[in-house]
Simulated scan of single mutants.
Amino acid sequence: MTADASPVSGSPSAPAVLRYTAFSADPLGGNPAGVVLDATGLDDAGMLAIAAELGYSETAFLTALPEESPAGGGRGFAVRYFSPKAEVPFCGHATVASAVALAERTGPGDLVFETRAGTVPVTVTEENGTLRATLTSVEPQVTDVAEDDVREALAALGWPAADLDPALPPRISFAGARHLVLAAASRARLADLAYDFDRLEALMRRLDLTTVQLVWRASAGVFHVRDPFPVGGVVEDPATGAAALAFGAYLRALGAVTGSAVLTLHQGEDMGRPGVLTVELREGDPRVRVSGAGARIPDAG
């Protein structure tokens, strides 16, 4: 067992759980995730118990694909993601964390993650000693959201409708997981987040949402974002790769960006865990890419 791995339950037979942060090269920034590089033999209850005890917004559980499979060869993995309360189909920051953990052991390069949302290619590069992972989404979908549901979301957040940015209307966007996108008209509105946990959770469960993606546009290509995550048992997610992918798809669907574009999303500043997510849109490719740095979180023991 390496210094960055420990059995959560303290049992010698428990799988090693690694702790990494994603979308920051600083262990104190970004979004922490649990990573189990060999989940062979773990059932659903076992994975959920590990995720709940660890307490991070998500933990990724990897199982190497057979050598003969199309994504095998030691670079392909089946991946499942669990929050402290439930399994989620896809998680961006835990994907980045897992890819960085693998790259530290086998080197940078291309990986393939088979998730419940679909196949996710990941590329890890090293820049000045820092590992960065770029993941490519499944094909996204953006749909309208009912006015009554928007009103309920605003009521749960305690946001007046006048505090929304009319240039970025509410939508539900999917790029591996479903997110309701709400745009604040000011940075101050985004910074003031104190919401009704149970009320927002009930709405999100009814709409099958993973997070609510709250955004403020600082400039044409720079945004500040926050992600309430009550359905995962977490008040707020510090850096949300799946929501960043969905947001890129949302902007493209609105026509707010055209052709190829690179966006910078700042998240976690209001939580004291700043992170940076880089979103890339490529002309002619409906998929969205998100990239960020990752770093091991030193073992507390």
Rank of each mutant, 00 (worst) to 15 (best):
M1R: 12
A3P: 07
A3Y: 11
A5N: 10
A5W: 14
P7M: 06
S13N: 10
P15K: 01
P15G: 00
V17P: 07
L18E: 09
T21R: 06
P27G: 02
L28N: 12
L28T: 13
G30F: 00
G34Q: 00
V36Y: 02
L42I: 01
G46I: 02
G46H: 00
M47R: 07
L48M: 01
A51R: 00
S57E: 00
E58L: 00
L62K: 04
T63L: 05
T63Y: 01
E67Y: 02
E68L: 02
E68F: 02
P70G: 14
G74T: 03
F77S: 12
R80A: 01
Y81H: 08
Y81V: 08
E87N: 12
P89A: 14
A94D: 11
V96Q: 08
A97D: 14
A99T: 11
V100Q: 15
E104I: 14
E104F: 07
G109H: 10
L111E: 05
F113V: 05
R116A: 13
T119I: 15
T119W: 07
V120L: 03
G129M: 10
R132F: 14
T134N: 09
L135F: 03
S137F: 01
S137A: 11
T143H: 06
V145I: 13
E147H: 11
V150C: 09
V150D: 09
V150P: 04
R151N: 10
A155D: 12
A155L: 08
A155V: 09
A156F: 08
D163R: 15
L168R: 09
P169V: 04
P170Y: 11
I172R: 12
R178P: 08
H179V: 11
H179A: 10
A185R: 14
S186W: 04
R187G: 03
A188R: 12
L190N: 05
D192V: 09
A194N: 06
R205L: 15
R205E: 14
R205I: 12
R206S: 05
D208E: 14
Q213E: 14
L214C: 03
V215R: 07
V215F: 12
R217E: 02
S219L: 04
A220I: 02
A220G: 07
F223S: 06
H224K: 08
V225C: 15
P230M: 04
V234M: 04
V234S: 11
V235N: 04
P238L: 01
T240S: 13
A242L: 03
A243P: 03
A244H: 08
L245A: 15
A246H: 07
F247T: 15
A253Y: 12
V257K: 15
V257R: 15
G259C: 06
S260R: 06
V262S: 15
E269L: 09
D270L: 08
M271D: 07
R273D: 05
R273Y: 06
P274A: 04
T278C: 08
L281P: 01
V288Q: 13
R289L: 13
S291M: 06
A293I: 02
R296C: 09
R296N: 06
P298C: 05
